[in-house]
Design a protein around this nucleic acid. Structure first.
Lengths: 252, 252
DNA sequence: CGCAGTTTTGATTCATCTCAATTTGTGTGG
DNA sequence: CCACACAAATTGAGATGAATCAAAACTGCG
């Protein structure tokens, strides 16, 4: 807790660094997707600068005034909501090219926390100016809408997971999702490091950390994966996928 | 099933009726919120017509091409997603003034189903034209973003519910949410008819219908509510709220 | 090298699911 | 308008998956 308070001061004295979409290898994955060169220059002017975060540092907190949305340039984040009565729910994990902060648009106040799970960099996108620019650039406007809609659809997937799946199905879905997102970023589909703890995975999946750990162990015993702490190697992706289709194959 | 197929044809031969935001008593709750009279006229021109649906009829289905978003003018809807393997998750219930269909923006294909739970009316809002108009009307643009963001925040709340709450807490949260939304629409906060079945409530809350029924019965035995089938009367809203704060009051 | 945080594993408890039987409500057609 | 059939809801008994409580092992950081 104290550590976080201290860390929260750091960005104010850390000069932002200059970023440019046009130079970024994530541009096909991120907000500038589909923009012409000249339009991308205009977006570059708007975005201005980036921000570096150390592991454990908050990008923003629930209750903070909303000003920016953020594009993950490198690193790994989690977002979580907490209630007055102490419940804590991880709502997502974000990696390079993904957009953070859209929870703040509706009330101008952020409703969740965003925390770097490893040293990370983000691009700061001032939202009011983004709205102005997007009213001039149709492609940008439409893409912003797509990004927000994609988040809604993703959330529906999480609801499905939390509402209908058993523990091992949830973990299987989680691993497949990570694998797919790593693949899209040019990393190995079968071998990766988890940046989050068992407890954070558990919170995201609606499970206790012990249940997550047991499910990992069981997957390993069954030859589906190899786990060593945070290092995961997927051994049999087909059988992991099969876990998501219930044995009875009920339809309708 | 056959009934649905038949119903699906009806709207094609049912002439749409004319709607006008400027005449609508939901305008302070719905998309035109905050617009000037002249801007609202422009929105009216865009929206054009509405559509009536009978109970059980689909407004749209997963897989259907995306063209409109819909404002609920009257009635009550549910949205649900289903997977190939037969899982079914209700993702939300929508009432007057709420917007449906934003799941379709990201891929131009709807990813969930929207079904009328009673005879209902919606306004059809052609999305491409809405984007064009919103690039000219700042207020409209910003409000559209707020509506989408609000949906994201709402989804986070559902994740919290599904991920951290026990059965009676989920039902309490559900009842309080309905009560609040009815209140905002000028209906009684304490007495209402549920438009959905126990099974649909259960799907939304990640519970089996029997568990929902038992929780209702328990609430009634404890004097929190009075239930008779779909008719609900809230007797002690404070104690229902208290159910959401765990007894130990753990913090942080 | 030691300590704190994380992870694994085991034994037990408990909430919810499952299966099953009734009851109640609703819509349809005679 | 009533009777019937079907859908929805209630309630009970028992099974089960995940939570809880507890202890030990591992990892990485200072």
């Amino acid at each position: 807790m104290h550590a976080n308070v201290k860390q929260n001061v750091v960005p104010l004295i850390t000069p932002g660094f200059k970023v440019a979409c046009s130079q970024c290898n994530l541009r096909e994955l991120c907000l500038p997707f589909g923009l012409s060169d000249s339009d991308m220059d205009r977006l570059d002017n708007l975005i201005g600068c980036g921000r570096k975060l150390k592991r454990g540092q908050h990008l923003y907190r629930a209750g903070a005034p909303f000003e920016f949305i953020y594009a993950v340039k490198s690193g790994f984040f989690k977002t979580d909501v907490l209630t007055e009565d102490g419940r804590d729910q991880v709502t997502g994990f974000q990696m390079a090219g993904e957009i953070l902060g859209m929870d703040g648009i509706s009330t101008e106040i952020h409703t969740c926390n965003a925390v770097a799970l490893e040293d990370s960099e983000v691009c700061l996108i001032p939202f009011t100016e983004l709205e102005m620019l997007s009213s001039e650039i149709r492609t940008l406007q439409h893409h912003l809408h797509k990004v927000m809609s994609r988040e809604i659809v993703r959330d529906h997937g999480v609801m499905m997971l939390l509402g209908t799946m058993r523990a091992e199905e949830r973990l299987a879905a989680f691993l497949l999702n990570l694998s797919q997102r790593f693949t899209a970023r040019g990393y190995s589909p079968t071998e990766f490091h988890l940046r989050m703890t068992r407890e954070e995975i558990g919170s995201y999946l609606g499970l206790k950390l012990e249940t997550v750990s047991r499910a990992f162990s069981r997957f390993q015993d069954d030859g589906l994966i190899s786990v060593q702490q945070k290092h995961i190697r997927i051994m049999d992706i087909l059988r992991i996928k099969a876990l998501l289709a219930p044995p009875d194959g009920r339809i309708g």
